[in-house]
């Protein structure tokens, strides 16, 4: 079972059409809990990108050997293995990066988006398609987290990337986890609205 999408289409699909946060609404806990600053968003996004790509490729490689009854445990095991390997390698050979990214890598074992992508895509498609899909999903998650982080950091602490730009803190409320739901919900609506308008105009032109 193969699809006819090019690698570029697979990547843009993850970023726009099936964006993990705004379209699929998966892995909302980290999206809400951690996206308080742009930097947090980048770190978690990068960690997810790595694990997603590695796990997708692995599952796609071994898809013929996975017993259908134990798919999910196998996925979890694969993700956990990759998380551990990445965590240990970072700690040993990239101590500077590890000091910043360490805690983010550890928490992604249970991310819904990764398991879901393995189930929906990697276990059916070819290795290269899975690779590009992993990149697309990871990028989509990364960009989503950065966008939410940008809004929340700007409104919550009046800063961007830790640099004070506003000089005051407009609404401390935006740093708290509950505000994450509002930001994610509003942005989700905003993106859907743009898409609907875009589709309407396209139809109007045709």
């Amino acid at each position: 079972m193969s699809n006819d999408k090019t690698s570029l289409q697979l990547v843009t699909n993850g970023i726009l059409k099936e964006n993990p946060i705004f379209k699929l609404a998966l892995s909302m806990c980290p999206a809400v809990g951690i996206s308080t600053t742009v930097m947090n968003g980048i770190m978690l996004g990068l960690a997810v990108l790595f694990v997603q790509v590695f796990s997708s490729v692995t599952i796609s490689l071994i898809k013929d050997f996975i017993h259908p009854r134990i798919r999910i445990p196998t996925y979890t095991l694969t993700i956990a293995t990759w998380v551990t390997v990445i965590d240990l390698t970072l700690a040993a050979f990239f101590p500077v990066a590890y000091a910043k990214m360490g805690i983010f890598v550890k928490i992604i074992v249970a991310f819904a988006i990764i398991t879901m992508r393995l189930e929906m895509f990697a276990c059916k498609e070819t290795v290269s398609d899975s690779f590009w899909d992993g990149i697309g999903m990871g990028m989509g998650f990364l960009l989503g987290m950065v966008t939410i982080g940008f809004v929340r950091e700007l409104l919550g602490s009046g800063a961007i990337m830790g640099y004070d730009v506003l000089g005051f803190k407009p609404l401390l409320f935006f740093i708290l986890p509950s505000a994450g739901f509002f930001v994610v919900g509003l942005m989700m609506g905003f993106f859907n609205w743009i898409e609907t308008r875009y589709a309407q105009r396209k139809r109007g032109n045709a």
């Binding site: 445990p73 196998t74 095991l77 293995t81 551990t84 240990l88 040993a92």
Partner: peptide, 20 residues
């Protein structure tokens, strides 16, 4: 699969522990 995963994680641990 658990054994394989354990083996991979164990090997990584052994390889990286000293540097860590």
């Amino acid at each position: 699969s658990c054994l394989v995963a354990g083996l991979i994680m164990g090997t990584t641990f052994v390889l990286t522990n000293k540097a860590k």
